[in-house]
Nucleic acid binder design. Structure first.
Length: 126
DNA sequence: ACGCTGACTATTA
DNA sequence: CTAATAGCCAGCG
């Protein structure tokens, strides 16, 4: 048994004394599991984690996800209406739409076309 | 320590 | 139909 590490240590305590296995970390892992060409909503993620914290905290977690490794595809997370409300928090407001278009997702006027067709429900798919 | 804000969502008027 | 408010929880001044 050398090194058969299925899962890396989930308990990464930061020197700040803050456990990384917070709600944030759970959100990041779930977002990373979003298949390419699919999108999900904040509420869906919150619901998948138990909806204890609320959809707002999911967006807050995304803000901390920048610079994470592996990178968190925050561009695949949109609001309930398929609107790119979070693009304003990206390094550049166009990056989110650009990334989505790279994945065959069409975005018009900050709105994902055929949103429910691209919608990926963590509760249903997982 | 208290209060406000915030990448949301659902409900009521 | 549209508009506004309440509920949610954690970070920041």
């Amino acid at each position: 048994m050398k090194g058969s590490k299925h899962k890396q240590s989930l308990n990464k305590i930061l020197p700040s004394g803050k456990p990384e296995n917070d709600f944030f970390n759970q959100v990041w892992e779930l977002v990373r599991q979003i298949p390419k060409g699919r999108v999900t909503s904040y509420g869906a993620i919150a619901a998948a984690l138990g909806a204890k914290s609320g959809a707002r905290m999911v967006g807050w977690a995304m803000n901390s996800s920048f610079g994470q490794n592996p990178v968190v595809p925050a561009h695949r997370v949109v609001n309930r209406m398929g609107q790119l409300t979070g693009k304003i928090h990206f390094p550049t407001p166009t990056q989110m739409q650009e990334q989505l278009e790279k994945e065959n997702i069409k975005v018009i006027n900050d709105q994902i076309v055929n949103f429910e067709k691209h919608f990926w429900d963590p509760l249903k798919e997982l």
